[in-house]
Nucleic acid binder design. Structure first.
Lengths: 313, 313
DNA sequence: TTGAAAGCGCTAACAA
DNA sequence: TTGTTAGCGCTTTCAA
């Protein structure tokens, strides 16, 4: 029944007799007993800081789920809510249940210190990298995303008045790399960023910062928002200043959360491919790759009506 | 070590000697071996149609997670994506791994036919009810939510021009019950619904339906939207018609997703308490309740600036 | 090619 | 009060 009938030289007659009996009895192997004997549980764990509880990274759970299921593995989900003590007790619990491997994922793209309890375990980091570079990681191609954002604006004809909105925080590499890619692409197009509006990555601070900035009389040609929530704040601020998207100002963003397609006009955004990240992570975990390589997953551009040609001067 | 030292009359000296040795050796019981012997795995499963993948029900996963962890249980997550074959194969897998119980949850509040594979298992339905009423269920108090929505408008002084937006679909009881509660509360306040704008529960159809409706010249005093996404569509349509929230039109909604606090002005919404639903479900599952009772969890009102007194006639 | 036996790490029953 | 043993359901090894 383990499918090794050839190797063990089982007679065809015996084989079919066993299979028939098993089907008849609706026999299903007890995976605990098997696991006890083989030390394999066909079970993996997704350990996160705050993904399940947060609104927009469900793709990470779903991708892990389906990729695991495709390999006949089941998925434990554990979430630390940024509590290190809780995290290690959850990991202990998973270890006690002999999971075959760990997906360690974070909500925000960043570098992480792997918890002590995970030392020596089979681990792949998803959407983050271990600071000591000891395990394989899967992260989005943020720099490529920045280039895509620049490219779409260049293609629409924007040459000046392109501003970045959102603060590229130190501890997250997403912002830094997006900025780098954007700057590089604009440079390749013979132009550059006109400036930056700093604010944290949420609608309300973005609204406040952009409103105050527009009050000074600046009239941007295009805004590159570091995520969709910032873009929502931007839409609100632009509307209050009588500026239309995209006729007066084009807007590009990152993440492609559901919000992007809900806005009016719907928002061009470079997607954070959560599901693909997770699928890739599971593949690395279960299909044997062990080299601590950093794998980059492309961030696809979702072109929507928030981008148009700049208003003639 | 099982904590039954009293019952088994172990000498204090032996007890501490064992405990010390265990600590020294960093001994951790192998839960597969224990499970094999006791038929208890300290493991439960969350089986859903499309929660992990969807944007706004993360609280269900998180609540299950924390409530399980609080009882030293770990959580498997399985998602069928509405595919019955996949669903039963996932359930078989969970059964093979001898989970102690199932949380069966749906994204939308509705009646469900429990999958065959779950027959005879320990199950609690969350955010849904088994059509045959065979297992305990935990569902939101939708009718109470409808009353809250009515109450907040009455309190603000609205007596006429209150419209419902969104179609109360047949197969979901959320809409029906919200409507019933709303109608009852308005009746208790001596008034009634002025009418209904039918549309599916998404921003774009809501925008289209409300726009067309406003084009006919109607000027509502307040809108009760069946969820926050509908409310987003309503905000957009009102803005395009030069109507301000809440000065011209008050808006109340259901769900209290993150969207509600992101809108300008932020949106009064009756919260879908996903986390509480899940916690209650886990409690029922693990703390021994077996009667197939329907448990209702209150939906708390989040009062925000989208509601104000009606405009003087 | 098939059958028998050992043992994975634990708990529960029984004997001392 | 403590020590010994059987057995949970499986896989693997060894003997026939």
């Amino acid at each position: 029944m383990t499918g090794r009938d050839q190797q063990m030289r089982i007679s065809e007659e015996a084989r079919s007799r066993v299979l028939r009996a098993a089907a008849e009895l609706r026999y299903r192997p007890n995976l605990m007993a098997r696991g006890l004997r083989t030390a394999v549980t066909r079970t993996i764990a997704l350990v996160t800081d705050s993904i399940a509880s947060e609104i927009y990274a469900g793709g990470l759970v779903y991708g892990s789920l389906t990729a695991a299921a495709a390999r006949e593995h089941l998925l434990f989900v554990a979430e630390s809510a940024h509590d290190a003590a809780l995290e290690s007790s959850l990991i202990e619990g998973l270890l006690d249940r002999r999971v075959d491997g760990f997906l360690y994922a974070t909500l925000h793209t960043r570098d992480v210190e792997l918890p002590e309890a995970l030392a020596g375990q089979r681990v792949v980091t998803v959407n983050c990298r271990a600071t000591d570079g000891s395990v394989p990681s899967v992260v989005p191609d943020e720099e490529g995303a920045g280039r895509s954002a620049g490219r779409v604006l260049l293609d629409a004809g924007h040459r000046e008045g392109v501003f970045l909105v959102g603060e590229p925080a130190e501890h997250l590499f997403a912002g830094r790399e997006r900025l780098r890619g954007l700057v590089a692409e604009l440079a390749a197009g013979g132009t550059q960023l006109a400036g930056r509006v700093d604010c944290s990555w949420w609608p309300e601070p973005a609204f406040a910062a952009i409103s105050a900035w527009l009050d000074t009389g600046v009239r941007p040609s295009a805004l590159v928002c570091l995520n969709d929530r910032v873009a929502l704040g931007a839409y609100q601020a632009l509307a209050e200043h009588g500026l239309r998207v995209p006729a007066d100002v084009s807007v590009v963003s990152f993440d492609d959360s559901e919000l992007a397609s809900w806005l009016r006009p719907s928002l061009t955004s470079v997607a954070l491919p959560h599901q693909a990240l997770a699928e890739r992570g599971v593949a690395l975990l279960l299909d044997g790759q062990r080299d601590p390589v950093e794998h980059r997953v492309p961030m696809p551009l979702r072109l929507r009506p928030s981008v148009a040609a700049p208003r003639p001067a």
